[in-house]
Design a protein around this nucleic acid. Sequence first.
RNA 1: UGGCCUGUGGUGUAAUGGUAACACAGAAGUUUUUGGUACUUUUAUUCAGGGUUCGAGUCCUUGCGGGCCAACCA
Length: 556
Amino acid sequence: MSEEGKIRNLNFIEEIVEADLEAGKNDGRLLTRFPPEPNGYLHIGHAKSICLNFGLAIKYGGGTNLRFDDTNPVTEDTEYVDSIKNDVKWLGFEWENELYASDYFDQLFEFAKVLIRKGFAYVDDSSSEEMATLKGVPSMPGTDSPYRSRSIEENMALFEGMANGDFEEGTRVLRAKADMSSSNMLMRDPIIYRIKFAHHHRTGDKWCIYPMYDFAHGQSDSIEGITHSICTLEFVSHRELYDWFIEKLEIFPSKQYEFARLNLSYTITSKRKLLQLVNEKYVSGWDDPRMPTISAFRRRGYTPKAIRDFCDRIGVAKRDNLIDVSLLDFFVREDLNKLATRVMAVSDPVKVVITNFEEGLTETCELENNPEDPESGVREVPFTREIYIEKEDFMENPPKKYFRLAPGQMVRLKGAYIIQCDEVIKNESGELIELRCSLVKNSKSGQDESGLKVKGTIHWVSIPHAIKAEARIYDRLFKVEDPGSEEGDFKDYINENSLEIKELYVEPYLANATTDAKYQFIRNGYYVLDPDSRDGKLIFNKTVGLKDSFKIETAK
RNA sequence: UGGCCUGUGGUGUAAUGGUAACACAGAAGUUUUUGGUACUUUUAUUCAGGGUUCGAGUCCUUGCGGGCCAACCA
């Protein structure tokens, strides 16, 4: 947008940032962070957060750290770290620093001891059940743990013991001594360290105690000097604790702000549930093109720009939302329309014989690679006596506004001739097996002197030149709009017809298809070569269909 | 029903006391060698009541609806 006329269209976080910058807070510094836990692949919901955090830094001249929130070794893995880095880069963002909460384990351990020394933390020997009971319910104050009044010396000794591996898992925890009567359950002496004899993907077996989220996240933010720590709405009630630790520790005051997470219709964005789909083989993996993960979108042919534009458009606010997937489709089509090479592929073929075209002859037609891109040039497509067209491009008894082929009716073969259907050949059981057509002699594209105007243009491939390929066509993974909030198991709502495999006849140009090229199969949709393709076997993923405003008056 | 967050077309987001707008989706049309693209037109909106004000989507108040919080997950 060139006109700075009305600048006021900011989301609420941008307003906060601008106000802070204007007030000279943090010496005019802006530092955000994207803090994934490496326990799964990034999905479209993360994309929103990535675009927000990195986008803010780009817009206001700050930076963004990529920080892995790896405080729970039992669920985390380097496989996820690698995929996350790859996905963030692919989306087009560069981080300031690659960091890990586990980098701060020593510092966090010291912070915990500071709290103990100040009388703000204690070791509790209660079981988790006992602690839950004492915490009580939000409507009534909780009860102090019997261990709450241990001496600083005893707490220190016990905590060191925990770190030394003197105690069994689950026998003791370190808790903050906050406010057992708070209406915010998180303030009722939250656990800050627990014992876990687990191997950590980065620190190995150095530790057998690990900090909880609330005692790692805010402190990491503070250590890094994060100015705006942006997270989703579920963390609103954590903010009080976030501020409490920073205050008690007297460290750099990062501030937390919360926005509403993205919900997409007909999809699920819960790492736990996505992991289930992977583990229980409902999909082929995290990058199965039906998944809402970044890696799946990439494999399916979505572009980073489409995803970024989508995230820009959906905005940032605080109310719960359920975004229509068709909005994502729109941005995918919008970008692909500019990029995709137009090619011809027939998926449900019917043979057409051009009776007045010489047998054995191959003629060359020139077709535009992309009418939206003048630079894209043309390519040669072979034309012969026998071609395939799409079965649905012929109707024996067409309704009024059917512009395709029908007995006695003419169509343009894209980039080639106008043909007329002379004869319909069927087998004994009455099935259509062949159409015999004649071409209009001087009607070839580019040198058309026929003077004829036909309403319809259809795609085709020369049978002797056609390459057989596989098309993988995807439908939404779930049958209901909001599978996450439906009764019962979300897996009951899985669409069992979300993958359809079709045979395809494609023009010879596609023999050299590559996985990063985008194609439009004319009049059908956008496709991309799948990495499963092998020499001699082309596999195409359907990214998204073309908009189709044609509807047969099925009433007939 | 303890606390916190939140209610604007079908969906999402804007309007920062002064004409409720933008995008998608829907409908209709023009152009077109993709029934694509582009372009044009069009349908449809402030949760409810009360109050403040010349004027309220916006401020106050009372309801009502939705969401979150009682993991040794993040």
